[in-house]
Amino acid sequence: MIFVTGANGLLGSHICKALIDNGYTVKALVREDSNTFLLDDYLDKLEIVNGDILNPESFDNELEDVKAIIHCAAVVSFHQADKALMDKVNVEGTANMVNLALDKNIEYFLQISSVAALGRLTGFGTVTEDNKWQESKWNSNYATSKYYAELEVWRGIEEGLTAAMINPSVILAPGVGAKSSSQLFSYVWKESTFYPMGKVNYVDVRDVCKAALQCLKLKKTKERYIVNGGITTYKELFDLIAKGFGKKPPHIKSNPFLLKIGMFLDKLRSLITGKKTIITTETAKLTKSEIYFDNTKAKNELNISFADLSDSIEWTCSKIKEQKSKLYT
Results as ranks from 00 to 15, higher is better:
residue 3 F to M: 05
residue 7 A to T: 05
residue 8 N to R: 01
residue 9 G to I: 00
residue 13 S to F: 09
residue 14 H to F: 14
residue 14 H to D: 03
residue 16 C to N: 11
residue 19 L to F: 13
residue 28 A to S: 09
residue 29 L to N: 04
residue 30 V to C: 08
residue 31 R to G: 03
residue 34 S to E: 14
residue 43 L to P: 09
residue 46 L to Y: 04
residue 46 L to C: 13
residue 48 I to A: 07
residue 55 N to Q: 11
residue 57 E to I: 11
residue 57 E to C: 14
residue 60 D to V: 09
residue 61 N to D: 15
residue 62 E to V: 03
residue 63 L to N: 10
residue 68 A to K: 08
residue 68 A to Y: 06
residue 76 V to S: 09
residue 84 A to C: 00
residue 91 V to A: 00
residue 93 G to A: 07
residue 93 G to R: 02
residue 95 A to F: 09
residue 97 M to F: 03
residue 104 K to S: 05
residue 107 E to C: 02
residue 108 Y to M: 06
residue 108 Y to E: 12
residue 113 S to P: 04
residue 113 S to C: 09
residue 113 S to V: 02
residue 115 V to K: 03
residue 116 A to L: 02
residue 117 A to Q: 13
residue 119 G to W: 05
residue 122 T to F: 03
residue 126 T to H: 10
residue 140 S to V: 01
residue 145 S to G: 10
residue 150 E to N: 08
residue 151 L to E: 15
residue 153 V to N: 01
residue 156 G to N: 03
residue 161 L to T: 11
residue 167 N to G: 00
residue 168 P to M: 09
residue 172 L to Y: 11
residue 174 P to I: 06
residue 174 P to Q: 12
residue 176 V to D: 02
residue 176 V to P: 00
residue 181 S to M: 11
residue 190 K to Y: 04
residue 191 E to C: 06
residue 193 T to H: 04
residue 193 T to D: 07
residue 196 P to G: 12
residue 200 V to C: 02
residue 200 V to G: 01
residue 205 V to E: 00
residue 205 V to G: 06
residue 206 R to Q: 10
residue 209 C to R: 02
residue 210 K to R: 13
residue 213 L to Y: 01
residue 215 C to I: 15
residue 217 K to I: 03
residue 218 L to I: 05
residue 222 K to T: 09
residue 223 E to N: 15
residue 225 Y to V: 04
residue 230 G to L: 02
residue 233 T to L: 08
residue 239 D to P: 03
residue 240 L to R: 12
residue 240 L to W: 02
residue 242 A to S: 13
residue 247 K to V: 09
residue 249 P to C: 06
residue 251 H to G: 00
residue 252 I to R: 05
residue 257 F to W: 12
residue 259 L to N: 12
residue 272 I to A: 05
residue 274 G to Y: 06
residue 277 T to A: 07
residue 280 T to Y: 00
residue 281 T to V: 04
residue 283 T to F: 01
residue 293 F to P: 02
residue 295 N to L: 01
residue 297 K to S: 07
residue 298 A to V: 12
residue 307 A to H: 00
residue 317 C to V: 11
residue 320 I to H: 05
residue 320 I to G: 02
residue 321 K to S: 08
residue 322 E to K: 08
residue 322 E to D: 15
residue 328 Y to L: 09
